[in-house]
Amino acid sequence: MTSLNDTTQLERQLSSLFRAEAEQAHLPLGTWQAINPRMGEPNAPSVLWRLSNAISFPRWRNPMKVKYAAPAATVLLAAIAAVLFILLVNDEDEGPVPAATPTPELQTPSPRPTFTPPPATSTPEPTATVVPTATAVPTATPLPATKSFPVALQLNSEPLAEEQVVEQWTDYLGDTEVVGNNQFNTVLTLCQDGTGRIRNVGGPSAEMTWSVAKSGQSWNQVTVQVLIPGQDPTDPPDRFAWRLEHGADGLDVEEYDPVAIVDVSGERCTA
């Protein structure tokens, strides 16, 4: 029996074992077929190549296709992703789209009709009640204001006598358009001279007169009465009785929810 305690003997036996084992081994026949399709891969794998491999990009049999098509497709995918990203960022910059576009009558030339602002005396801006409507009446976005709301009518001002209140409200509401109503979809043009026009969106319009009928419970409240010629003045329809109030949140509209008071000075009332 052979002893393996001797190093030389061990090495000799090991060498014999290796050769005996190697005699039986031959390179598998399919080796060339296995490596041949991969011989077209680029020598130095690029980042794109590794990326395309990482996302399991298919390996075509044609090595030239593998070499060029996979990176090209990866670049294409990256470009599409970049374009989508840029579009997304631009959308965010532009902000939300207005809920509705104004009616044709409201799309006046520059200067654009504006929503009445509060004065610069730190009172909050007038708040318009947003009313969802089925038609194209402007709803949510008040137009920029160019007509200052009278300081004397603000909630934090000294109360005025009723005559002064009527005068202030009349002066303020003159040459404006009261836009939108959730029930009638009307637009009222209130000219400074007390005349005006009432229009139903998608329907007929009529000449009318208007006045500040009363100031309500306090100086910061007002009711506008609208009269259409031929109608009984003692029984004005409720829908023409508009009450506005300047409260803690700014100008508020309690009845029929007009959503904007637009300054139309020199435009609709000059004809």
């Binding site: 029996m1 036996q13 074992l17 050769r19 005996a20 081994a25």
Partner: peptide
């Protein structure tokens, strides 16, 4: 591999099956 199963070649003459299995 199974060296013991192969025929007795020149390399195997110096290596019996028991030693091969042990190695």
């Amino acid at each position: 591999f199974s060296v013991a199963d192969t025929g007795a070649g020149p390399e195997q003459s110096a290596l019996n099956a028991e030693t091969a299995a042990m190695l």
